[in-house]
């Protein structure tokens, strides 16, 4: 209760909308919020983290009004907990790419490189969406990865690739588009997976519904595509 009150205290009387969103949405959502605030008298406040961490917080009573998850399973858990106010809608999708250092100094050719014990290989942990997707792609291609670290979220993995502390990792296409420092090697469509991002309003507030609707607009779609996402 205290937490809710503290978080929702609006600055100078303006209404506040609290959005919990997957860390991979950080960049496009920042731009989308600016557009949304320009036409609605509201301040959008984000909490970005791994979808699974957000799910845990929401089920434990965090004051989120909108939840955008990077996979369906986390959203289903929130739906099952009876916290959603509207049915979830898939508003965007992401695919996986192989992330490597700029210029690909290690000459990484494809998924097979991830089983090379001489390379420093990173994945997201299997408990977060980018980790389970990576394992589905690798499993489908029959590659057993020689993993050196299972990072707690997509952002942490991208940072280690950017810093050159890892040679290769499985990241979102949107992460490659969003980074000046890493290059992406595309994965053939038949080996790749499509990660659907669902969003739902968690309160009856009109602003929450309006934000969910805005995410499905052409305007928001253009921003999301520019950041490497695919829109339905």
């Amino acid at each position: 209760m205290l937490f809710a009150a503290a978080c929702a205290s609006p600055s100078d009387g303006e209404d506040v909308l609290i959005v919990f969103a997957a860390a991979s949405l950080t960049k496009p959502f920042g731009e989308i919020a600016e557009e949304f605030e320009a036409v609605n008298d509201v301040e959008v406040v984000f909490s970005f983290a791994g979808s699974s961490a957000l799910r845990v917080q929401i089920i434990e009573g965090a004051p989120a009004e909108v939840y955008a998850s990077a996979n369906l399973a986390n959203m289903e858990a929130v739906v099952d907990a009876g916290i959603t106010h509207t049915d979830p809608v898939v508003f965007v999708a992401n695919t996986m790419e192989i992330g490597v250092a700029p210029g690909n100094p290690r000459g990484i050719a494809g998924l097979g490189s991830l089983s090379d014990g001489d390379l420093l290989v990173g994945l997201c942990d299997a408990t977060v969406p980018c980790g389970s997707l990576a394992r589905r792609v690798l499993g489908g291609a029959g590659v057993v990865p020689a993993v050196d670290t299972n990072e707690p979220n997509a952002r942490a993995l991208v940072t280690k690739l950017e810093e050159g502390d890892l040679d290769v990792g499985m990241v979102y296409r949107s992460d490659v588009v969003g980074s000046d420092l890493i290059n992406g090697i595309e994965i053939a469509a038949q080996d790749n997976v499509l990660a659907a991002y669902p969003v739902a309003a968690l309160t009856a507030s009109g602003t929450a519904a309006a934000f969910v609707a805005f995410l499905q607009s052409d305007e928001a779609g253009a921003i999301l595509r520019r950041h490497g996402f695919a829109t339905p």
């Binding site: 791994g50 699974s52 961490a53 799910r55 845990v56 990173g122 942990d125 408990t127 977060v128 993993v147 050196d148 670290t149 299972n150 990072e151 707690p152 942490a156 280690k160």
Partner: peptide, 25 residues
């Protein structure tokens, strides 16, 4: 630990890291 040494069961995954990741699943 998780920032510097990463997270791999049996090699660098200590109890606090195991708790953090298990909490989400």
């Amino acid at each position: 630990t998780i920032t510097f040494a990463g997270n791999l069961a049996g090699r660098t995954q200590t109890m606090p890291l195991a708790v953090f990741l298990a909490l989400e699943q």
